[in-house]
């Protein structure tokens, strides 16, 4: 599974797909001060990106692709 939940932190690994969006949504809503580690994230479906944009969690490490990292920083307002 490309999402690893280690409260209050969630780690993305590899390419995270559409089916992970619901779990991410539930985790971030249920976890106060949740943190997102994208260090091993190779990419993500727009559905996960959208969850990050809506809940704006703290990003503790950017993803591999600097373009994706810049977009996430833009929509979350969180710079690692």
């Amino acid at each position: 599974m490309p999402l690893f939940f280690d409260p209050p932190r969630v780690h993305f690994d590899g390419h995270c797909e559409l089916q992970d969006a619901s779990a991410l949504w539930q985790f971030l809503r249920a976890t106060p001060a949740a943190e997102v580690d994208l260090e091993c994230c190779e990419g993500m479906h727009a559905a996960l990106f959208q969850v990050l944009a809506v809940l704006r969690p703290r990003i503790v490490a950017p993803p591999i692709d600097p373009r994706l990292g810049s977009l996430i920083e833009q929509v979350t307002g969180s710079a690692p």
């Binding site: 690994d13 260090e39 091993c40 994230c41 600097p66 810049s70």
Partner: peptide
């Protein structure tokens, strides 16, 4: 992917405000 990330770690080609 950590190693890949280190190789790719560079200034963003696209700067997003």
């Amino acid at each position: 992917t950590v190693r890949t990330r280190r190789r790719l770690k560079q200034p963003a080609a696209v700067v997003i405000e």
